[in-house]
């Protein structure tokens, strides 16, 4: 048994954020909520979604692994309206996940389940020396600047406690510098200077579904994966992106 009702807008955002990196996913559902961890096809990035039971208006579930094609879910959620309620319902007999959208009309969709067995993929518990809390819009703007000069970008913490988004091409260079006085910065927790370099296309995919006022928690170290977390309603979404190393 699995039946859960949530506002369509939040679920759409969760699917949008996930499907930028991953083609298919296995939702591990139980009495506490929905969890899913997946790597992108190149195994460069990892996405982890946690939608606790209290996010839902109604939630009843036993333990199930629900494997779905994210592109199909994305298309269906693309048809959802923000004032609609979404009920997710597992049809174990037909091996399908039903999605029922309700407001003025009742619209029913049904998607086939994939045999994406739960990978038991765990998010590695990495300790980071630095954490930046920044508005998503500001970070996305800095990535756009960096993109003008190269396809990768360095995320740096300077010795004097600044957060620097730095990109260098063959002839050109781009740099966005934030410090504790910047309005877009909500907090900088810094213990040491650090620098890691990342593929820009991945960072853009990771931040694509964000609204400009979403608060990103960006965890940084030297030649370490970047961890980027934000909340969608009560749900939490986490990305890990492996660095480029010299």
């Amino acid at each position: 048994m699995f039946k859960a009702t949530i506002n369509a807008k939040d679920f759409k955002k969760i699917i949008d954020a996930t499907s930028n990196l991953v083609d298919e996913i296995c939702f591990e559902v139980d009495e506490n909520g929905i969890k899913a961890n997946a790597m992108d096809p190149s195994h460069v990035a990892l996405v982890s979604v946690n939608i606790p039971k209290d996010t839902f208006e109604e939630y009843i579930s036993d333990v199930h692994d629900i494997g779905v094609d994210l592109e199909a879910l994305k298309k269906i959620m693309g048809r959802a309206k923000s004032n609609e309620k979404l009920t997710l319902e597992l049809d174990e007999e037909k091996n399908k996940l039903n999605l029922i959208l309700k407001n003025d009309a009742v619209r029913k969709f049904s998607v086939s389940l994939y045999d994406v067995s739960s990978t038991n993929l765990k998010v590695p518990d990495i300790e980071y020396p630095n954490e930046v809390m920044i508005k998503a819009g500001a970070f996305v703007e800095a990535l756009k600047d960096a993109e003008l000069v190269n396809d990768h970008v360095s995320l740096k913490i300077s010795e004097d406690g600044k957060f620097i988004i730095f990109s260098k091409g063959d002839i050109n260079q781009s740099e966005t510098i934030y410090d504790n006085n910047s309005e877009s910065i909500l907090d900088l927790k810094i213990t040491e200077s650090s620098k890691s370099t990342f593929n820009l296309a991945y960072l853009k995919d990771i931040t694509k579904a964000t609204s400009s006022d979403d608060i990103l928690h960006i965890y940084l170290g030297s030649d370490m994966p970047v961890k980027i977390e934000y909340n969608i309603g009560n749900a939490k979404i986490l990305f890990l992106l492996a660095p480029r190393i010299e």
Binding site: M39, H43, V44, I126, H152, M224, L240, A242, I245, E246
Partner: peptide, 14 residues
């Protein structure tokens, strides 16, 4: 030149 590494490389460390 820098090289893209895989995220799995960081699983083993932990």
């Amino acid at each position: 030149k820098n090289k893209q590494v895989k995220i799995e490389d960081f699983f083993k460390v932990n």
